[in-house]
Design a protein around this nucleic acid. Sequence first.
DNA 1: TCCTATGTTGTATG
DNA 2: ACATACAACATAGG
Length: 280
Amino acid sequence: MPELAEVEYMRRRWNPGLGHVVATVRLHARAGVFKACDATELASWLPGARLESSAAAAKQMVFRLIAADAARTPLWLGVHLGMTGELTVRPAGLTDQKADHLILDQPGARQSLVFSDFRMFGRVQFHVGPDAPEWWAGIAPAVTSSGFTVEAVTEFLRRRARAPLKAVLLMQERFPGVGNWMADEILWRAALHPARRCGELSAVEIKKLHRETVWVAEQALRLIGEGDTAAERWPDPPASWLFQHRWEEGGKCPRTKKPLERATIGGRTTCWSPARQKLA
DNA sequence: TCCTATGTTGTATG
DNA sequence: ACATACAACATAGG
C-alpha cells in the first residue's frame, strides 16, 4: 500500500512507543524480510534499548534507539513496508500473528510494537553506531524540499530521454516516495500522457510536472496529518482526485467527465484520462 | 485456473 | 558504463 504520505502515517503509529524501553524482541526471520540486515546483531542489541525518535523519508522509515550499554550506543532500526507492510501497537500478552516479523515488547507501556507484512516484500534494516547508515543517509532530497528543483528534474529526464514518463516518476533516486498511484495522480494533474517519452517534454511541461509532484506530495501529507493513526486506514483524498476513480470499473475523469483508460506502462498498471492527457 | 495487487532488485539486452 | 525492460520475489482475493 504505502507511498510517501502513507509511510509517514505508518511511522506515527509507533509513536506510543517513544520514550519506552524495549525489553524483549521476537523476530520471525521468514523469507527475505531480514535479508538486508544481520538479524542476530539486531536481536542482541535491541533488548534494553529505549526508543528515542523516528523519521520517514521516501518509503523508508527509521527508528532511533539508545542501547542499554554503558556507552549508550545509538541504534538505527529501518523499516520498509514493501507492498503490504504495516506497523501496529498491540496490547501486551497477545499471541503473534502469522504475518508478524518483528515484535518489540515494551512492558513498561504494556504494549508491543509490531511490524507485519503478509506478502513479505517489506524489509528490516539495522545499524549500530553514531553515523547514519547508507540506507538512510543516501535517500534523495524529498520532493517537498528545496533540493528538488526544476533543474534536477530536467537533467534527470534528459538522461532518460527514451523512457516513458510513468517509469521515470517511479524512480526513487529522483522522485523519492512516489509510487504507482502518486505517479498517475501527478501526470493527470500535469495533463501529461504517461507514455510520453521523457526527452520530448518542453521546458513548460517539465515545470508543470515538477509543480504537480510537489503539490501532490504536500497535499497527501497534509491529508494524512489529519488522520487518526489508530484508525484502520489513512483518510482517502477527496473525489476531485484521480485517486478515487482510478480503480473503479468504468471510472470517469473528475475534470473532463470522460472515461478513464487503463494499461500497463513502465511495467505497472497505469490509469489516465485520454481527453486530458494526449500523446502527441 | 488465471489474473490482479499503492515495491524493489537482479539480470538480460541494447 | 549506462539506459531500458522485465522476471522474480510471496501471498491473498476476485
